[in-house]
Write a protein that binds this DNA or RNA. Structure first.
Length: 892
RNA sequence: GGGCGAUUGGCUCAGCUGGUUAGAGCGCACGGUUCACAUCCGUGAGGUCACUGGUUCGAAUCCAGUAUCGCCCACCA
């Protein structure tokens, strides 16, 4: 008949390290994370594709943030009964992975070159096998309820196929091309990088002024006539093919059209006029090196100038440089300066603040380099991607990021998509000896040249690989098996929310939008949710060198995943940076402990023998049911709106301030009444158990572990409290419960009185534990009924004994202080004649009169009464009445 | 050089479409050892909502401008 255990033996501390791992195992073995074979009939769809972390990385706070947010969203929708999928995966991160592996093999005395492509890639796969999975296991510890059976990798065969097919389609559509252009070259990584990976940094360089001799009428350098140019990069003089001045610059007007002689290489170059030249900068004349500077490149194209590369792929001077050949660019710079000085052609030098691009990965100064590269024509793709957001088919949160996105899309450049690396998807392009290009999506490549039919044996494949972000850009659908029309693709594409960091809005989100629309004709997701960066104490970016890194795994070990998750979500806003401080983590830990102890209370107060419930629900029961319904409604609205922080806050407030602070205290009154029958106690306990269950449901998406553990105890104690659901992870979300406004108003009034009376005790120095005769004057007949039944709460919570309820209109004595609520006024009867009481009474009366005066003035303002909404006016009137009643009871 | 965001008690942050006396947590002060929890309970102090104007019966909230901080984008050698 009775359930044996009530778990009275639980420790008063939530022990996360002991509780959480077994809970995760239970979830995994329950299969709760994997969608049912068929979507539930009529279910809505909710899908998140996880941003794939780099295989090489260890879990950091950025991961913890996205795991928490996405897991919370997914768990909520799973509880709603939606057709839900959260698909995890990892990214091969070609340049980042090579950077890491290069360091590892360096310790083994090897280099990329010494191993060669084949062995290097073998080594990479070995490395991948070692490190893949690591981050997945760490995400388990955070509670990530992803469908691990669908875990994907950007280098797996399905992704490889998607990459080939997508590229072939781009090529066929004329949106991929191969051509010569100036690209960002990292001489250390020895690869092209995109504009996005080329990070500008402020540096102090040197601006040299150099004299170029003009060519005289006889075709020889004129020792007397010179043009002075300013440069920060003397080593590129070797590649100069013009000197440019502003067309309106009178100083140089006569020189335009003549020729100057480039030092050392003795190249005769024209002096040209171009409006891009700033007259006020330097000497107003600039040397033009189209192969080594973006501006010069543009100018070179405008004027049809030769483009001469003087640096090789290691950024050393090449054969053009004669005896300088082989010198590193900086050595060459010093040498060049020395030689110019020796020749008397160095006219000056001064320090110069400038912005120089650095490799995002390794920090090396990026070298603009002229080379033949694969590009993706971005403008047509961007146009569609922009329209999707402008027209609301994809929404970006926070809203203002839409402008950032739009600005980038409007000014987009073609995407240099090839990388001279090894680890990645090789570009599926083949060259035939006649120079034809064949792009093929077949796994084994083309059978023959697409143009001249030469057999495949005579074709050679492109050695460049794709930028990592190309395969990432296909992620929302390559994970579903695209281009095959798989059941998953039909069922789970497009996805619902793309949740990621604002730092990869362009790198990734923009590319997914462009490629998604191109490949599938549909926006790859409906909402982009951008979270903020996690910062340390004082708002400083966390970094190992600063030593302010909070390691999420350490936090999880000490205080649990739930606490970390709460701390990462509460008090944040999309797109806003947040601070993760020790104090915040402490607060979150305290909250999990609070839930644990609320559960201990409910379990421990379960009657030994559970009788059949009897009697009408008490005020406490009616109140908590109504407040729970309110909390559910609020949380539902917030989660639907992706207001994650608002949800965390409201759930916290409900659990702590309403369920624990007031309901449990009132439930104690009911459970411990001496005149209560077993049936009544059973009824109250069930209400408490039900309310706890409801609280756990609300909090589960954010704090899955402690709620799941509590749920299992609750289920054990009484399965009716859990609707017979053994696992909270697959229990249903509750919403739409009925509110009871009478009960809410009644308890609201009682709470006001209790607070006021406690204040009165403190203010008047009344010992907190001392029982006192409490008088309550009802404001009206209904309030008198409420007070008659709610009096027992006043007794316990305001230490009133006896509690005397006076009918409406009853006159008061002259107490030392009065508190009021819509229910009526209350005071402790006794000791009202001492000088302290008199003074206190006088002060309170004065304070009341000030409030009354202000409200009377406000209500006498015709404009206010006429224009403010009726309910606002009514509220002010009620408040005035309350203050007046209070003053009356004071007897002043 | 453009664009975006932020500015609310000592600290970290809430305050939606303008409407009671601007909230919470931490910290602080005072008081609490009975059977959920001292990782707790109760009470309190503390804010001219960055500044200046404007709209309004009413502005932290809307508009314009200013200041400070932060981020992003940008081809002056």
């Amino acid at each position: 008949m009775t359930t044996p255990t009530t778990r009275r033996d639980l420790p008063p501390r939530y022990d996360a390290a002991a509780v959480e791992p077994p809970i995760y195992e239970r979830w995994l073995s329950s299969g709760a994370f994997t969608p049912a074979p068929e979507p539930p009939p009529g279910a809505e769809r909710f899908v998140i594709i996880m941003p794939p972390p780099n295989v090489t990385g260890a879990l950091h706070n950025g991961h913890a943030v996205f795991v928490t947010l996405e897991d919370t969203m997914i768990r909520y929708h799973r509880m709603r009964g939606d057709d839900t999928l959260w698909l995890p995966g990892v990214d091969h991160a070609s340049i980042a992975a090579q950077f890491v592996l290069d360091r590892i093999i360096a310790e083994e005395g090897e280099t990329r070159a010494s191993l060669g492509r084949e062995r290097y890639l073998e080594r990479m796969w070995q490395f991948m096998d070692e490190t893949r999975g690591v981050i997945g296991r760490q995400m388990h510890r955070l509670g990530a309820s992803a469908d691990w059976s669908r875990e994907r990798f950007t280098m797996d065969p399905i992704s490889a196929r998607a990459v080939r097919v997508a590229f072939k389609r781009l090529w066929d559509a004329g949106l991929a091309y191969r051509g010569e252009a100036l690209v960002n070259w990292c001489p250390r990584c020895r690869t092209t990088i995109s504009d996005l990976e080329n990070k500008p940094r402020d540096v102090t360089g040197t601006l040299w002024t150099v004299r170029y001799h003009l060519v005289g009428p006889d075709g020889k350098p004129d020792p007397a006539e010179v043009i002075r140019v300013a440069t920060t990069r003397p080593e590129t003089i070797l590649g100069d093919t013009a000197v440019a001045v502003h067309p309106d610059d009178e100083r140089y007007a006569a020189l335009v059209g003549r020729e100057a002689l480039i030092p050392f290489v003795n190249r005769r170059v024209p002096i040209i006029a171009d409006a891009a030249v700033e007259r006020d900068f330097g000497t107003g004349a600039v040397k033009i090196t189209p192969a080594h500077d973006a501006d010069d490149y543009e100018m070179g194209r405008r004027h049809g100038l030769p483009m001469i590369s003087v640096l090789d792929e290691d950024a050393r001077i090449n054969e053009v440089g004669g005896d300088l050949a082989g010198l590193d660019r900086y050595d060459a710079r010093r040498e060049m300066v020395a030689r110019l000085e020796a020749a008397g052609d160095l006219e000056g030098e001064r320090p110069h603040q400038m912005v120089v691009g650095h490799c995002d990965r390794c920090g090396t100064v990026v070298e603009p380099r002229l080379s033949v590269q694969w590009f993706i024509r971005a403008a047509p793709l961007a146009e569609r991607a922009l329209a999707s957001v402008r027209e609301g088919r994809t929404r970006i949160m926070p809203d203002h990021q839409e402008k950032v996105y739009a600005h980038w899309m409007e000014n987009i450049h073609d995407w240099a998509v090839g990388r001279q690396l090894w680890w990645g998807h090789r570009i599926p392009a083949w060259y035939c000896p006649d120079g034809h290009i064949t792009v093929s999506d077949a796994e084994d490549g083309p059978d023959a040249c697409a143009e001249c039919g030469r057999p495949s044996a005579e074709l050679t494949q492109e050695t460049d690989i794709f930028d990592t972000w190309f395969s990432s850009g296909l992620w929302p659908f390559s994970t579903m098996g695209w281009p095959e029309e798989t059941p998953d693709l039909r069922r789970f594409y497009p996805s619902s929310v793309m949740e990621t960091g604002p730092d990869i809005l362009f790198f990734w989100v923009a590319r997914m939008m462009m490629l998604g629309l191109f490949c599938t004709d549909v926006e790859p997701f409906h909402t982009v949710y951008l979270h903020g960066i996690v910062r340390g104490e004082g708002g400083v970016k966390m970094s190992k060198t600063k030593g302010n890194v909070v390691d999420p795994l350490e936090v999880v070990e000490s205080i649990g995943a739930d606490a970390l998750r709460y701390a990462l979500v509460a008090g944040t806003a999309p797109g806003m940076d947040q601070r993760l401080t020790a104090a915040k983590l402490d607060g979150a830990r305290n909250f999990t402990n609070k839930l644990w102890n609320a559960t201990r209370f409910v379990l421990g107060s379960r009657p030994e023998t559970m009788a059949d419930p009897e009697g009408e629900p008490s005020l406490a029961e009616r109140w908590i049911a109504s407040r729970l319904a309110a909390a559910q409604e609020r949380a539902t609205g917030q989660l639907d709106a992706l207001d994650m922080s608002g949800y965390a806050g409201s759930a916290y407030d409900f659990a702590w301030s309403e369920f624990c602070d007031w309901f449990i205290e009132m439930a104690k009154v009911e459970l411990r009444r001496e005149d209560a029958t077993d049936g009544e106690r059973a009824r109250v306990w069930r209400a408490a158990a039900g309310a706890l269950g409801g609280t756990l449901r609300i909090l589960h998406p954010l704090m899955p572990f402690v709620t799941e553990q509590a749920w299992s105890f609750l289920h054990e104690a009484d399965p009716r409290a859990t609707d017979g659901e053994p696992l909270l992870v697959s229990a249903r979300w509750h919403a739409g419960g009925e509110r009871n406004h009478d009960a809410e108003a009644a308890v609201g009034g009682l709470v006001e009185l209790v607070r006021g009376l406690r204040n009165l005790r403190t203010e008047t120095g009344m010992p907190p534990g001392e029982w006192r005769h409490l008088v309550v004057a009802a404001a009206e007949p209904h309030a008198q009924e409420v007070l008659a039944t709610g009096g027992r709460y006043l007794e316990a919570l305001a230490r009133g004994r006896p509690v005397e309820v006076l009918p409406p209109g009853a006159a008061g004595d002259r107490p030392a202080g009065v508190v009021a609520s819509p229910l009526g006024a209350a005071w402790y009867a006794a000791d009202d004649s001492g000088p302290e009481a008199v003074e206190r009474r006088r002060a309170q009366a004065e304070h009341l009169r000030r409030g009354i005066d202000r409200l009377r003035a406000l209500l006498a303002n015709e404009s206010f009464v006429a224009r403010a909404p009726a309910e606002v006016v009514e509220r002010e009137r009620a408040r005035l009445a309350e203050l007046e009643a209070q003053l009356r009871q004071l007897g002043e």
